[in-house]
C-alpha cells in the first residue's frame, strides 16, 4: 500500500511521516501546489506550520490545490490522517468536526503524553487493541499509547451537541489520560474521526514514536492500523468484484 504525505510550505514533520509510513508500506511526498495524489491508498496531512499558520492554524492550507484532491479523496472514503497541524487543516476543511484553539496555558508545550484509546476499532486504531501484555483478557482496560505532543494550538473544542453526537457515534478516538490534558481540550480529547470513520485527526505525533531509540514505538500502531484497513478494503473490493 502507498501513503501520500502532503508537504506545504511550513510543514516540518512530513519527512518523519514518510519514514514512519515507510515502515509499514510505501510512502511519497505530495507537493501542496500539485493536485495529483499519485495513486496514494491513504493520505497523511503532517505537522508543522503550513503557510505560516497565518490568520488561524490551517486556515490558508485548507485551500491549497492538493487539499481539493484530498477532500474529494476523503469524500469517496479514502483514508486520511491529520497529525497536529494536519488535524487543524482537516478541521478547517470541515472534514472533521470541531476546531483547535490556542492552548489554555498560552504556551507552546513539547512533552511525551499518555493517551487512552477510546475507540480501538477504527481504521486508525484497530492495531492498538491487539498485542500488548496488559491488554490480554482485560477488555475494560483502555489501551494506552505513549506519544510526544508539541504544539501551541491544540485545545480541541466542539459545542456540546456536537460532542454528545460524536461520543455516541464513537468518533472520540483518543483521549489524554488523567492529568495529561495539558492544553485544555474539551473532554480530554486528543484525536477524533469523522462520522464515516475514514478521516482521523490527532494532536500528538505518532510519526515521532516509531523507534525505540527515541523512547516509544507506540505510534507505529496508527500506521499499522491504516495498512490493515486499506488492505481489508482492497480485499473486500476484490471479493465484491469476484
Amino acid at each position: 500500500m502507498k501513503f501520500g504525505v502532503v508537504q506545504f510550505p511550513g510543514s516540518c514533520d512530513e519527512r518523519d511521516a514518510v519514514h514512519a509510513a515507510s515502515l509499514v508500506g510505501e510512502a511519497e511526498l505530495l507537493w501542496h501546489a500539485d493536485p495529483d495524489l499519485k495513486g496514494s491508498d491513504a493520505v497523511i496531512v503532517p505537522g508543522g506550520f503550513s503557510y505560516g499558520d497565518y490568520l488561524r492554524a490551517g486556515a490558508i492550507a485548507r485551500f491549497a490545490p492538493v487539499m481539493e484532491s484530498v477532500i474529494a479523496f476523503a469524500r469517496h472514503g479514502g483514508l486520511v490522517l491529520g497529525i497536529c497541524n494536519g488535524f487543524q487543516v482537516l478541521c478547517e476543511a470541515r472534514l472533521l468536526p470541531g476546531a483547535l484553539l490556542p492552548n489554555a496555558g498560552l504556551r507552546f508545550v513539547c512533552r511525551q503524553v499518555d493517551l487512552e484509546v477510546a475507540n480501538g476499532s477504527t481504521a486508525f486504531t484497530r492495531a492498538c487493541s491487539s498485542g500488548g501484555a496488559d491488554s490480554a483478557g482485560s477488555g475494560a482496560q483502555a489501551q494506552h499509547l505513549s506519544i510526544p505532543a508539541k504544539h501551541a494550538c491544540g485545545r480541541y473544542y466542539a459545542d456540546s451537541d456536537t460532542l454528545s453526537a460524536m461520543t455516541e457515534a464513537g468518533q472520540v478516538v483518543l483521549r489524554y489520560a488523567p492529568h495529561e490534558n495539558f492544553n485544555g481540550s474539551v473532554a480530554d480529547i486528543a484525536g477524533v474521526c469523522n462520522e464515516q470513520g475514514n478521516v482521523f485527526g490527532m494532536m500528538p505525533h505518532p510519526e515521532h514514536a516509531v523507534d525505540a531509540l527515541t523512547g516509544s514505538i507506540d505510534g507505529l500502531a496508527i500506521f499499522q492500523s491504516m495498512r490493515m484497513a486499506a488492505e481489508g478494503a482492497t480485499t473486500a473490493a476484490e471479493s465484491a468484484r469476484a
Binding site: 490568520l55 488561524r56 485551500f63 470541531g98 476546531a99 484553539l101 473544542y157 459545542d159
Partner: peptide
C-alpha cells in the same frame, strides 16, 4: 469561508 471560523 476564510476570515473567521464560525464554529469558534
Amino acid at each position: 469561508r476564510l476570515l473567521a471560523n464560525p464554529l469558534i
